[in-house]
Design a binder for these strands. Structure first.
Lengths: 339, 339
DNA sequence: CTGTTAGCGCATTCAC
DNA sequence: GTGAATGCGCTAACAG
């Protein structure tokens, strides 16, 4: 069943069918109605492949994430998909699983399917593999790391803001031994978070003990490992800030095994504000970086780039704030650590 | 840059380029090499839309889930995607968000993009909306609820097995007041789980107190609400089994607010074995239903259906087992409840 | 305002 | 074993 079939039955030309379906206003309402009637009756749906071929528009955006199973991403996928539905786009979702080969493959798949734009939400990993897309002038949107080039937009995240709030919160609770568990430091965004922490600590006139800065990997297991190292120190920190929520959850899990009660003996702060953060025990105090907003910004960035008519200018810069949200995993520093 | 461009530069016809790229063995190795050289040099990738148009094969499978943000699904998406990558397919992922309108829209999107098959992993919701797909003879795979029709496969889950194990485990720990928090009972799979629980309890010669069976909705909030109701009962249950892990997590979260220690005062058992289950505090004893296996079965079902040459037979039935996995959220029933 | 026609990029006949 | 020609389903240009 194709457009010709509809044309025949509605006794019009295929061109008219096409116009009616695409709601071109110049078509006679009478004819349009006739066409739509047949379309409904037969349950006809235009073939997107054919459309794409002739129009050059596939109405597909690529979405590259580092790992769907990381609780940070499902919300993003959901919001991105909501936007896609609203704007009549489809999503080509790929997960790099931290594997450069897989990233390369993602790019290949995107190109083969002729996506009109790609959101690269991997937080600074292997951007070099995107050369091929840039070469083809496919609009791109990055988080943090995009270079200022035509068709390349960027979402700059203000990590400093939320992290400073967190540090000041801990200081107000009279914590003096502050630890930080980083993400993988080859990740741009992880490095920036660490630096924001150090800067914020310096700002309140304290210095950060290098022993208290441990490299993690943004996983729960990493958080557990890191906590073990911190726990084995002669003088344990009284508060631990983590580069993401998963790490914080790992820390809490391990502290539970050590019999260290949170927040009485140890305060823990996360980062991201994954939805889950409010449901764990105790509910996690964390820095919010809205996944919904991020996804929407990314989508809008691509859409704008696609719809723009002067394609020579550089992509737009967007910014996203972060903010501390207080829950139950932080408390006054335990007694023996007060002066 | 298209196939003609390659043909010109390799000094062959477009037909030969096509054959070379598709690795048709009859093409002269010399020519093939020449073609590939040009292809590499120019970074040529065939246009999938055009291919799909002429071959009638889009190499896209649809995947309908009820909610990507439910931790149960990301693992499924990941595994499904892994399979897709291996087999050179793309995925059209849609999330119904428990909204029939959205489900309808999903179906429409699938048809427009001409997917070759659809995995419907919504556990028994609004299957009627799939008429349109069935009508077009698109291979379908369901969980639990698929009717025995051509092109329609099914993954039957043995809920009873794992749930019986869980009930027997609780009985062995001398629990006598067993509660069950169901999922939304309009979901086929939720109803079956509840019945499996009741059957298992009957099997050990106990009867299930209707007061102890509460309808939840498979969310954390639902678990919290349900727990409140159970906690307000004159005689509280000593063990609660939940229709899914999210519910169990909600229960634990609320019990924490009540100051009821788990597992000392209350045993909790989940269902699904979401990855997160092992990281919460305490680690959740739950019934495993492998998300990875489920996704792989679903993908294989579709692939088999697509590749099969006698399309008249009914779809295949697959089965998936469930098994109890013991962790730390269950313990001996508290004293006062012993005989 | 409507119909005829060309062509999007590719795979696949069919002659050679 | 290769190339020229046809058509997949649709939109856009053009003529009427």
């Amino acid at each position: 069943m194709d457009i010709r079939e509809i044309a025949k039955r509605a006794k019009v030309s295929t061109a008219t069918v096409s116009r009616a379906i695409n709601r071109i206003p110049t078509v006679d309402p009478q004819l349009a109605k006739r066409v739509w009637k047949v379309v409904e009756e037969l349950g006809y749906y235009p073939n997107t492949q054919a459309r794409a071929l002739v129009s050059g528009k596939t109405r597909i955006f690529g979405l590259i994430v580092s790992e769907i199973t990381n609780p940070f991403f499902p919300e993003i996928v959901q919001s991105f998909e909501d936007m896609a539905v609203q704007n009549n786009y489809e999503i080509l979702l790929t997960s790099t699983v931290h594997d450069p080969k897989r990233m390369e493959l993602s790019v290949r798949r995107m190109i083969e399917r002729r996506v009109e734009g790609v959101a690269v939400l991997t937080f600074g990993m292997e951007e070099s593999l995107l050369e091929d897309l840039r070469f083809r002038k496919v609009p791109l949107v990055f988080v943090d790391v995009g270079p200022p080039l035509p068709h390349v937009s960027n979402i700059r995240i203000n990590y400093q803001r939320g992290i400073r709030q967190a540090v000041q919160h801990l200081a107000a609770l009279r914590h003096e031994r502050l630890a930080f568990i980083t993400g993988p430091l080859n990740l741009k965004s992880a490095k920036v978070r660490k630096e924001a922490f150090e800067e914020s600590v310096r700002e309140i006139g304290t210095r950060v003990d290098p022993e208290y800065v441990i490299e993690g990997d943004h996983t729960m297991e990493g958080g557990m490992m890191a906590f073990k190292r911190l726990a084995s120190l002669p003088s344990r920190p009284t508060a631990i800030m983590c580069s993401n929520d998963l790490t914080a959850i790992g820390v809490m899990r391990e502290a539970y095994d050590y019999g260290i009660p949170i927040p009485q003996e140890l305060s823990v702060v996360g980062f991201d504000d994954v939805r889950l953060a409010q449901f764990i025990i105790p509910p996690l105090t964390t820095v919010q970086m809205s996944q919904t907003e991020l996804a929407k910004l990314a989508f809008r960035a691509l859409l704008q780039e696609v719809e723009r008519d002067v394609p020579t200018t550089n992509g737009t810069e967007y910014t996203l704030n972060t903010d501390l949200v207080l829950r139950k995993s932080t408390a006054l520093a335990p007694r023996q650590s007060h002066r």
